[in-house]
Write a protein that binds this DNA or RNA. Structure first.
Length: 593
DNA sequence: GCCGTTTTCGGCCCGACTGTTTTCAGTCG
């Protein structure tokens, strides 16, 4: 059984975590952490490459001789000797201490060495017995802060869905808008980058009156406690222990601060490196010329001027992960990411015929009122019995109704006859070929047997992709964010097969799904695979989730030309016709050249 | 530990805040 990239990365993650306790050179630790990211992001199986004599792992940027050797050992033996040794000297439960806010590797190491604190329970005990406050570098306040922090560390899920964060943002925005002292207001951080889950919230304001703003912020009803308050920065926790940071900056620094607090950390490190090459210094206050005796402010009021000072075009926040935004940076490529207005159709939704709450007519009306020009009705197939999945007879009956309704609509809107056909556990599609052949749009999807092996699930999906009637694979990994891991599937093979057969993959816009993710979308783009962004709506309101799918698409660097349901109906139908005649090999990549 | 049209050695992003400090270390983002 071959190790997956995340499994390999996990070993180096643990190695870095444990080394931090020993006071190891921080740059060495950073190098390990960097390799974790590189391995996770890598599109091909690193284990396979490690066994491939003709491939040199050090050709992967971020992987040097040392890590390459360790990967080989890991792949050959399934173990990392250095990690085994460290685990023998430091109990893994010590790593839990790092989850306490304000607790880093240094303090944790002191607690472990001096007081033999090995777990959060030990730590609470030591605090209650007043043993912590007498340690060198600790004190009464620190001991109390740790005690308070243990509650937070114990809180299960720290991250929340982007959609949940967005609701909090809207409430806080409304509250802050009432403060006269605030001249400008923007939410930054992973929220602004559109990350699928958000760990904290960063609020940035321009004001001459910091204390007044902070007082007003402190009155937000959802705040439980203020953890930090200085001249320019204030941190609070909500009643659900969710952290919100507020920063007050002068106008001339707003752009620099916005860029800085939007991140990501990796993006910022790269930006500062670029600045340094140009004899500039970048911080949250601006860009400064360091070539002379005195540092001189060069720019910082807007993000655009900050990026331009560094010789770059403004980069959409969704791309700021230090992945493709620097290598593809130009005004042209940065400004053409897909946005909400580009979607003309929605190709995955349910009705009262199965587990939806809206009737066929209601779904049509809801889609029209949201500016869409066409939809595909894709109810469940018979195997999905809990949702009253459609038998061939019921499906054909629904398709007759759709024909009737289309006739009434008289070309003003078009309903496509679709189906979300289950990919059966034993393989094969849940409905007969001759039935599927009568539809306009066929999604294949896995619902059962999600615990099967990587080989089994991958083979089921590959078979569906090769099936002549299947157009696209819905929610291709089956993950539920913060709840359920993706099923074991070799996405690389799924994608190469999609590319070969001209089939599409879905971004499921449900805020709990959002698969494919950003990195997977970049890989799909490299292979020229068409993407569809679908709501998977189970009610009329369910259509509103499309914007989350758009955000994910932007994170994946998708332009409208990569997304099938940006096509006008005529062109979409042409694509489908071409695909069925077996000639489609992905949609045009011409303008991406 | 990684990396190199300023380097194969010597760098590696930078500032705010807190608490414990007599001038700074640790943590965080």
């Amino acid at each position: 059984m071959s190790l997956t990239n995340p499994q390999i990365a996990e070993h180096f993650q643990e190695l870095a975590d444990l080394l931090e306790f020993g006071g190891t050179n921080p740059f060495r630790i950073r190098a390990y952490r960097n390799s974790v990211r590189v391995i996770e992001d890598y599109p091909e199986s690193v284990a396979d490459l490690a066994r491939n004599e003709s491939f040199d792992l050090t050709d992967i940027p971020g992987i040097g001789d040392a890590v390459a050797k360790k990967i080989k050992v890991l792949v050959d033996t399934g173990e990392l000797p250095q990690l085994q040794e460290l685990k023998a000297t430091i109990p893994e439960s010590v790593l839990d201490l790092l989850r306490v806010p304000g607790m880093g590797p240094k303090k944790a190491a002191v607690l472990y060495k001096e007081l033999d604190v090995q777990s959060l329970e030990d730590l609470a005990e030591a605090c209650r017995n007043d043993r912590v406050k007498n340690l060198k570098g600790f004190g009464a306040k620190t001991q109390q802060a740790i005690l308070d922090g243990i509650q937070i560390a114990a809180a299960a899920n720290e991250r929340i869905y982007w959609a949940t964060a967005d609701e909090l943002v809207q409430r806080l925005r409304t509250h802050l808008k009432k403060c006269k002292a605030i001249q400008e207001l923007e939410f930054a951080g992973s929220y602004r980058r559109g990350k699928e889950t958000v760990g904290d919230l960063d609020v940035l304001v321009v004001s001459q009156a910091g204390p007044e703003v902070m007082d007003h912020f402190g009155e937000f009803t959802e705040i439980a406690s203020v953890t930090v308050r200085g001249d320019t920065k204030m941190s609070v926790r909500t009643k659900k222990a969710f952290q919100i940071d507020l920063r007050v900056v002068p106008r001339e620094s707003f752009g620099a601060a916005l860029a800085y607090f939007t991140g990501s950390k990796e993006h910022n490190v790269a930006l500062r490196g670029l600045a340094k090459q140009k004899q500039l210094r970048l911080n949250e206050w601006g860009v400064f010329d360091t070539s002379g005796e005195e540092e001189v402010y060069v720019s910082g009021q807007t993000e655009t001027e900050v990026y331009e000072t560094l010789g770059l075009s403004w980069i959409p926040p969704e791309l700021r992960e230090n992945r493709i935004e620097f290598s593809t940076n130009s005004a042209h490529t940065m400004n053409r990411l897909i946005d909400a207005n580009d979607l003309l159709g929605d190709l995955h939704m349910h009705t009262t015929a199965t587990d939806g709450k809206g009737t066929l007519e209601e779904m049509v009306e809801a889609a029209r009122s949201r500016g869409l020009q066409y939809i595909a009705i894709t109810d469940h197939s018979q195997r999905v019995s809990m949702a009253r999945g459609l038998t061939p007879d019921r499906l054909l009956e629904q398709w007759d109704q759709i024909d009737d309704l289309n006739a009434k609509l008289d070309g003003s809107f078009r309903i496509l006859k679709g189906i979300e056909c289950d990919i059966l556990e034993q393989g094969g599609m849940d409905l007969p070929d001759e039935v599927l052949a009568q539809g306009d749009w066929v999604l294949g999807a896995i619902h059962y047997g999600q615990q099967q092996s990587l080989e089994q699930i991958t083979e089921r999906i590959l078979e569906a992709i090769r099936h002549p009637e299947v157009d696209a694979i819905a929610h291709p990994t089956g993950r539920l964010l913060l709840k359920r891991e993706p099923y074991a599937v070799d996405l690389r093979r799924v994608m190469t097969t999609c590319a070969e057969y001209g089939k599409a993959l879905e971004i499921n816009a449900n805020p709990m799904r959002l698969d494919l993710n950003d990195i997977q979308l970049m890989h799909a783009t490299e292979l020229g695979i068409p993407i569809v962004i679908n709501s998977d709506a189970h009610s009329t309101d369910g259509l509103d989730v499309l914007r989350y799918g758009i955000l994910q698409a932007r994170r994946g660097g998708l332009t409208p030309s990569r997304v099938l349901n940006t096509l006008p109906l005529e062109d979409f139908l042409k694509w489908r016709e071409t695909r069925k005649s077996g000639t489609a090999r992905g949609i045009s990549t011409e303008e991406d050249a």
